[in-house]
Structures are given as structure tokens and as C-alpha cells.
Design a protein around this nucleic acid. Structure first.
Length: 274
DNA sequence: CGTAGACCCTGCGCGC
DNA sequence: TGCGCGCAGGGTCTAC
């Protein structure tokens, strides 16, 4: 469900509302999501503790206290939404994080591809889920073009699959990978180490531009992404190819085609993406 | 080491 | 109306 812009939008909202507040109670409605939830450790880290900051690493949201952090990944269908404590529970609500003034956050995830886990203080760089993640594309200190170029040297996979490899660069998921390549006028099926070096400037620039624009629009709600208030994002109105099979390309008017790569849908224009 | 494919799980829209 | 099928913003594990 969420890619980097959706998680970033969520993180900003949660940060604004939670930093400085204290968790009154935390409860888990089932023992596991994707893995077993470390319930006792999370209660120790959160209950009675003040939220010091809310951060993002790739598609992970991290809610910190002085005792450690709660890690949240939304998977494909996860939501992390604020609600009043007395509001009815919707199906697939797996965890409740109660704050001290009648508010709580709920983790809802029908497919259970998401995860809830604990981090010890200072473990952001070494936790098994985070340690192997690639660079943050929107970090101004990152030479994105250089990283992509270097990582592509020994790879023979299609460029779209390559861009979705979170061990190289985080946050580029199935929607934005197609969008980036349309903007860069590159066919998603092109083997990545056959792409001319000069084109990596354009690829990296479009990654940064697309993700930045999507964050400004509050993310993309193609099916069911929602922010902490249950509101959708609006970037879907700006999608050039994703979900637009058989519709005209906004640049050349040719039909957008839908193909499959690594079991995921890919969209591109046959004419202007070479 | 790099790559392809299976797999995890539930819900929804579609065609019949 | 009811049912089966395919598909869904992700990530990990295995076999080659």
C-alpha cells in the first residue's frame, strides 16, 4: 500500500500529534502480524513513557521514547490511525496505542503483511529490519546518481525491478517506479546495466521530483491508503501511467500498456519510453 | 553474488 | 444472486 511519500505523510502527522505525549496503555488484539509481536518489550518501551520523536527509515515509521522505539511497517494494507478510545473497532484492528487524553492510535492491517516490532535505544542503524536498507533518496547528503550507477554495474535485471530494490534505494515502490521511468523516458524492461551512464542523472532527478511532489500532495491513494486522520492523499490525480492501461500517454498520445515484472504490474508508454 | 519464483494473507471487482 | 479468479503502494526466503 504505502511507498515513501505515504509513510512520510503519515509520519509528519503522527509526529505533530504525538511528540511530547505519553502512552497510557498499549494492547495487542492478536499475538502476531507478520511475525510474533514483542508485546511485553513494546509495553515496557511505551507505557508511561513520553514520545521524544517520530522518524522514518525507508517505509518504516519509528516512534521513539527514552527506552527505545516502536517500529511500524504498513505492508500492503496497513493503516495507523487516530481514533477516540470509545470508537467502534473495525475488523483487523491488531493493536491499540492509548495516549493520555482520550485519544488512541490503532494499527489495522487486513492482509497482515505489515509489522510491529521493538527497537532498543540506538538500534536504528543495526536492527535486522533496517540494517540492510539502501540510501534515503530525499536525503540531501546522498549522491543518488552515484549510488544507482555503482549498484547497477553488476546487475542484469530490468531497471524497474532494480529501482524497487530497497537494499539500493529505499522508498521507491510499484507506483512510483513506473512514474519515474515514464518521466525519464526509459522503458521499464531495459536491462539496467545497458542504460547509458548519462541517463542516471535523469533517473535520480525524477526519483527525487516524483517523491517530493507526492509528499506535497499527501501521498497517493490508489485503493486504500489513509493518513492518521483517515484522509486520502491526492497524488493519484497526477499519475501519468500507473493504473492507466489503454489510456493515452499525456506526452505523445500513444496507448499506455500494462505488463508484468517480478509478479508486479508495470505501466509504460510503448512509444516515448525507449 | 545476482536473479527468478514462491509465499505470506484478506478483500474486492469482474465475468460468468 | 452467487462463485471462482485475478489482482492489490511490500518484503523475505529458497533454489539455481
Amino acid at each position: 500500500m504505502p511507498e515513501l511519500p505515504e509513510v512520510e505523510s503519515l509520519v509528519r502527522g503522527v509526529r505533530q500529534e504525538l511528540v511530547g505525549k505519553r502512552f497510557a496503555d498499549v494492547s495487542f488484539l492478536r499475538p502476531d502480524v507478520r511475525e510474533v509481536i514483542p508485546a511485553a518489550r513494546l509495553k515496557d518501551i511505551l507505557v508511561g513513557e513520553t514520545v521524544t520523536e517520530v522518524t522514518r527509515r525507508g517505509k518504516y515509521m519509528l516512534i521513539h521514547t527514552n527506552k527505545g522505539a516502536l517500529g511500524v511497517h504498513l505492508g500492503m494494507s496497513g493503516r495507523f490511525v487516530g481514533a477516540s478510545k470509545s470508537a467502534l473497532l473495525v475488523a483487523h484492528t491488531h493493536a491499540r496505542f492509548e495516549v493520555n487524553d482520550g485519544l488512541e492510535y490503532r494499527f489495522i492491517d487486513p492482509r497482515r503483511f505489515g509489522r510491529l516490532f521493538s527497537l532498543e535505544p540506538g538500534e536504528v542503524g543495526s536492527h535486522p529490519f533496517l540494517a540492510k536498507l539502501g540510501v534515503e533518496p530525499l536525503d540531501p547528503g546522498v549522491d543518488l546518481r552515484g549510488v544507482l550507477l555503482e549498484a547497477s554495474r553488476n546487475r542484469r535485471q530490468p531497471v524497474k525491478v532494480f529501482l524497487m530494490n530497497s537494499e539500493v534505494v529505499v522508498g521507491v515502490g510499484n507506483i512510483y517506479a513506473s512514474e519515474v521511468l515514464w518521466r525519464a523516458k526509459i522503458n521499464p524492461h531495459t536491462v539496467v546495466n545497458k542504460i547509458p551512464v548519462r541517463k542516471f542523472i535523469e533517473i535520480s532527478r525524477q526519483i527525487i521530483d516524483v517523491l517530493s511532489e507526492a509528499i506535497k500532495a499527501g501521498g497517493t491513494t490508489f485503493r486504500d491508503y489513509r493518513d492518521k486522520d483517515g484522509n486520502p492523499g491526492y497524488f493519484q490525480e497526477n499519475l501519468a501511467v500507473y493504473g492507466r492501461q489503454a489510456k493515452p500517454c499525456g506526452r505523445c498520445g500513444s496507448k499506455i500498456v500494462k505488463t508484468t515484472q517480478a509478479a508486479r504490474s508495470t505501466y509504460h508508454c510503448l512509444v516515448c519510453q525507449k
